[in-house]
Design a protein around this nucleic acid. Sequence first.
DNA 1: GATGAATGAGCCTTCATTCAT
DNA 2: GATGAATGAAGGCTCATTCAT
Lengths: 186, 186, 186, 186
Amino acid sequence: MRADARANRDAVVAAAAAEIATHGIDISLTAVAEHAGVGIATLYRNFPTRTDLIGAVLADLESRMLAIIERCQPLIEADPESAWDAFGHAVAELRPGALVTAFAAEFVTDDHLPQSLEVERARSLAAVRQILDRAKHAGLVREDLTAAQFQMGIALITRPLPDVAVPDLAQHRAWLVDVYLRGLRP
Amino acid sequence: MRADARANRDAVVAAAAAEIATHGIDISLTAVAEHAGVGIATLYRNFPTRTDLIGAVLADLESRMLAIIERCQPLIEADPESAWDAFGHAVAELRPGALVTAFAAEFVTDDHLPQSLEVERARSLAAVRQILDRAKHAGLVREDLTAAQFQMGIALITRPLPDVAVPDLAQHRAWLVDVYLRGLRP
Amino acid sequence: MRADARANRDAVVAAAAAEIATHGIDISLTAVAEHAGVGIATLYRNFPTRTDLIGAVLADLESRMLAIIERCQPLIEADPESAWDAFGHAVAELRPGALVTAFAAEFVTDDHLPQSLEVERARSLAAVRQILDRAKHAGLVREDLTAAQFQMGIALITRPLPDVAVPDLAQHRAWLVDVYLRGLRP
Amino acid sequence: MRADARANRDAVVAAAAAEIATHGIDISLTAVAEHAGVGIATLYRNFPTRTDLIGAVLADLESRMLAIIERCQPLIEADPESAWDAFGHAVAELRPGALVTAFAAEFVTDDHLPQSLEVERARSLAAVRQILDRAKHAGLVREDLTAAQFQMGIALITRPLPDVAVPDLAQHRAWLVDVYLRGLRP
DNA sequence: GATGAATGAGCCTTCATTCAT
DNA sequence: GATGAATGAAGGCTCATTCAT
């Protein structure tokens, strides 16, 4: 039964992540539960407060971030330009905008966010700093750009649109990421 | 009492514009009315549907856009770079993100938006096109950038953050506009 | 300007009578004013309270009743049966159901109704009593039927249907009046 | 908790039936919930739309109709007159007037009414037809009266009075039913 | 552990009524 | 006198959250 519970928990987090990325932080928890195929009470058992759920989604996000970095890191020596480009787009694809709050920790204070994520955030920022340094070394990024600043930019770019259907939004986003990366060059 | 009614109407539009720019399109009309210092029924008398109110806010936005363009247009001959820069920041200060829908008309379809604004939108886009052409001529912007694309970028950058308090958000936005404008150069 | 005011007043009463007959006593006064083609404030100037308006409609109804009686009275000697029948249907056509309250005074107590109509009610009932006596004399109606009872029956039959569209309702009503009159025979 | 939920549901239907019979179809759902002793959201959980609730009340009504018929049917052979009389009064006591719409299906079209009750209506009408035939056979009712017509008459007679307190209304109704039944004789 | 049911609070919308022009 | 505007109150409906099975 432990495995079952775990599966439920994961389904809830996945559903919440998808909803948050698209519709923002103020999603209907009822809808999340339905989307995850569990009862609303199961959601509350796993995540007593909205903050707890967001914390889990955030942790999930950070781990994906680290995975991306691990994937792009080795490539940057061989072909810095396309590795950096791939990194930027991959991060943007995560659409962390709605969680900008926690994502760009330095700048943000939000009581709705869990305190316990300092470690993850620090680790994540450190990883970004590493890849950023390589990019700077390769002349792809201005020297004065900090990791937190970079993330804040990504976050601002990938925020959810409030209840509006924009066709080809993904393409617009990709285009904007291109412009963003270009604008960050020395 | 005609003047009084007018003042109330304007107060409602102003309150709605502020709320929408900050919190998005799904604001509480009750809150708007309170913010404007009028009863809820007064809001409804002036704007029977949510769409009507959004339409008024949008019209207001467009007129401010045109004012900005008229202000920046004459300066661009003398000092293209700073005029273009001022233009970009001024438009971003309007925070049209929540209304991206109508703002960058070409890309968007939304039934909640009024149909009657085609004219304003077209005029607005035409005005942007003019100033954009000058900027291209001055070598400040890539040749292949369309007016609608430019506006969509601004809109994506200035979307409201979903219910999150980010300190110094205005500064982050300004920084991002700088990067955006830089990224748009040839 | 006196004539104008009078015309307005009459228009309001007519509109209210029509609405009440069809939709009952709980009509929207705003709708009545619109229907009458006057501003809502004009309605309130003429009829400060809902009771005042209903009173006027009721007075109007009573006068129509009297007119019907005056029309049928002379005919009853020549052809009692068809005169009585015509009378019943004509009264039913007034659809006094919604105002049953006041219409069948003896049985009803309603604080929303004006006190000042006693005279009209008495006169109206007296007139009904006259024609009823003739009908009894002609053997068309049971001896023990009182005027108030007769009216209550008509009223119950002609009440407005609550917000439901019944096709050919008028025909059903006429049929029911026929049955009613038949049932009242000795 | 299944039993509890069932009890709540029944309480809501009972409260709604009482309110509808007295005040008509446009009752305040809030009032129904209060009357039933449950929260408004519980009402909505059981009956997402007003139509759903009305449908349930209607189904309840039909089942009571059938019960009455089953009770009166066997008696009609022994004493047709009093059995038929008892039947008419019992049906009138249900006060189906507000639901006339569905009650006399043939004549009515209402989008607020549920589509799914055709079966119940047909069964109910068939049952009425049976008892009606016996009554006709016993010479108590005209040959040309249809079941739907009979029901429409009952419905018209038992409609709710619009927000008016008529003392002894029940007695007036009973008297009118008597007249009605008498009027239906050959 | 999981589930569905119950609840109150909040926003949306309409309407009777009052007020200033 | 007539009018349109302003307002509060009330009902409709949804959703986050708690509870009993």
